[in-house]
């Protein structure tokens, strides 16, 4: 074990490895999705030449105009060019939850109840935010 790693906890090392793999996968997905989108394939919900006429609208007005809906409604059109990138964005925004869940069994095995509780609390907060159940906004 290298000098540096001697001072790093096992859960921290594993968290870092999962974050690394996840980051590389997300970057790859985003590059592919953007390339396809720019090439106009698959056909986007909003044609590319139309987007500049709409990006100065507020998020609420934009969503009203295209009629897809908010929250997870984008999943219905995730196969379209402009929403394909959302898969990469959603994965990027889920990496932390995955890393936390990965270290939870380690913390429980170490009987580290305080940090296991913090992990459960953080995952609950992030899942609540991701669920869209909180509502609000405009």
């Amino acid at each position: 074990m290298s000098g540096r790693k001697r001072f790093v906890s096992p859960e921290q090392l594993i968290y870092g490895v999962w974050l690394d793999y996840g980051m590389r996968a997300c970057l790859g997905i985003l590059v592919i999705a953007l390339t396809l989108y720019m090439a106009g394939f698959p056909e986007p919900v909003v044609p590319l030449e139309e987007v500049p006429r709409r990006w100065s609208l507020s998020a609420e007005a934009y969503q009203d105009l295209i009629g897809i809906g908010t929250g997870w409604a984008w999943l219905k059109v995730a196969y379209r060019g402009d929403y394909l990138s959302y898969v990469g964005i959603a994965l990027l925004s889920t990496l932390t939850i995955g890393c936390y869940l990965r270290i939870l069994p380690l913390l429980l095995a170490m009987r580290d109840r305080i940090y296991a509780s913090i992990v459960i609390g953080e995952v609950a907060v992030l899942v609540l935010a991701a669920s869209g159940l909180l509502g609000g906004g405009h």
Binding site: E60, S93, A129, G132
Partner: peptide
């Protein structure tokens, strides 16, 4: 991560700007 999900769920992420 917590805040960005609020923006995604409110439709405030546009692929052509974000990606």
């Amino acid at each position: 991560t917590a805040a960005v999900w609020v923006y995604i769920n409110q439709g405030a992420v546009l692929a052509i700007i974000a990606v």
